[in-house]
């Protein structure tokens, strides 16, 4: 197995074009596990840790551009205020050591249905920036996940960044696991509220992470946007049903389909309550001011 170590993005793209079978590796928290378990034997690894421009983030045109190689720990410490939902999801990834190495780009590259950041990326309406020697493009998050551990990348493309809007209302992420830390999602849920906007997505409950479009439309139509009052139980219940209905879960070693559907409903109800309370107490006021 060859170990390719580019130091610039151009060099990395050239190598990827030349060796489309090379597997990109950043933190290695997914790729190394697959290698160790002998589930995967790529002809080459393309080590992106030497490409400095991937490990940067910036803000422009009202969007945060988060480099694919920024580890979760930095998302939490440097972007916790700007991207609270993504920071919440990042906090649930593995252990401190894993969070020091693992990256959002890696989460996207692996495209596991259980990846922790996916629901937040979907709910915030993030776009994935990819590049190749042929040029660059961005892909909407909901178009990025194409199947179990499959994504929309062409063989010569690399994930370079994620673009997402800074929080302007409220964001919540919640994940169910059968341990209180360091656990893979049995199911996960994100909700993002901005004035007149609702993003709702779920993870580990369908072949791909997915948005709950009907639940989003419901919130846009039914939330009492103009009056900062607590939400009616009937609204929460209806929302929870729509979220559970958007799932297409399976029975597996981590939990049953029925449990996942049930738990998503509970998470939806709770997370919407927290998000709405944040929104009406903080975010909403900020918008009004």
């Amino acid at each position: 197995m060859d170990f390719l170590r580019p130091t610039t993005l151009d060099e990395a793209l050239a190598l990827k074009a030349e060796r489309p079978g090379a597997v990109p590796i950043a933190g290695g928290t997914d790729v190394m596990v697959e290698l160790n378990f002998d589930h995967r034997r790529p002809e080459a690894l393309l080590d992106l840790t030497g490409v400095a421009e991937l490990a940067e983030w910036s803000t422009s045109d009202g969007q945060v551009r988060l480099g694919a190689g920024v580890p979760y720990t930095r998302v939490i410490t440097e972007l916790g205020d700007v991207l609270p939902g993504l920071a919440m999801a990042s906090r649930t990834v593995g252990s401190p050591q894993i969070r020091n190495r693992g990256t959002v780009g890696g989460n996207l590259g692996a495209a596991s249905p259980a990846g922790d950041t996916h629901p937040v990326l979907l709910a915030t309406g993030a776009r994935v920036e990819v590049a190749s020697v042929r040029g660059g493009r961005t892909i909407a998050a909901e178009a990025f996940y194409t199947g179990v551990k499959r994504n929309a990348l062409e063989p010569d493309e690399l994930i370079t960044a994620v673009h997402l809007p800074p929080a302007s209302g409220a964001e919540q992420f919640a994940k169910v696991g059968t341990r209180n830390a360091m656990v893979i999602a049995v199911c996960s849920f994100a909700v993002v509220l901005r004035p007149g906007y609702a993003g709702v997505a779920l993870g580990s409950a369908a072949p791909v992470p997915r948005r709950a479009a009907e639940a989003e439309r419901f919130l846009v139509a039914e939330l009492p946007w103009q009056t900062p009052v607590p939400l009616a139980d009937s609204l929460k219940r209806a929302f929870a049903e729509l979220v559970a209905g958007a799932a297409d879960p399976i029975d597996d070693v981590r939990g049953s389909a029925a449990y996942r559907r049930h738990a998503l409903g509970v998470l939806a109800r709770r997370a919407l309550t927290w998000a709405w309370d944040d929104y009406r107490n903080n975010g909403g006021e900020r918008q009004c001011a």
């Binding site: 992420f173 919640a174 994940k175 696991g177 341990r179 209180n180 830390a181 656990v183 509970v266 709770r270």
Partner: peptide
């Protein structure tokens, strides 16, 4: 969160 069921996965703030 660290003292609640679900831990930092943010599943409850005391509900249930």
């Amino acid at each position: 969160l660290r003292r609640l069921p679900g831990g930092v996965s943010n599943t409850t703030h005391g509900e249930g």
